[in-house]
């Protein structure tokens, strides 16, 4: 999955640690999501979308290369 988490986080001026606090996850988890190493569960993806006031499909899209 490709995602816009890093872009949206930086647009809010938040560090990974601050975003991790908002989501109640570790900073390492935020880092793994941003780098595409880990795809979040649906509840966490919805939490991210709500936090950034985005539609979930505008934040995540399938990585065609990995299909």
């Amino acid at each position: 999955m490709r995602n816009r988490v890093r872009e949206l986080r930086e647009a809010h001026g938040w560090s990974q640690g601050v975003l991790a606090e908002h989501l109640d996850v570790s900073r390492q988890t935020v880092n793994a999501i941003e780098n595409g190493k880990y795809d979040p569960s649906l509840p966490l993806a919805f939490k991210l979308a709500r936090l950034f006031r985005q539609r979930i499909e505008s934040m995540f899209e399938p990585d065609e290369d990995r299909r």
Partner: peptide, 14 residues
Amino acid sequence: ALVVRRIIRADELE
């Protein structure tokens, strides 16, 4: 017990 508590309260990736 501390290890179990930490695992239960960990996030999904952890």
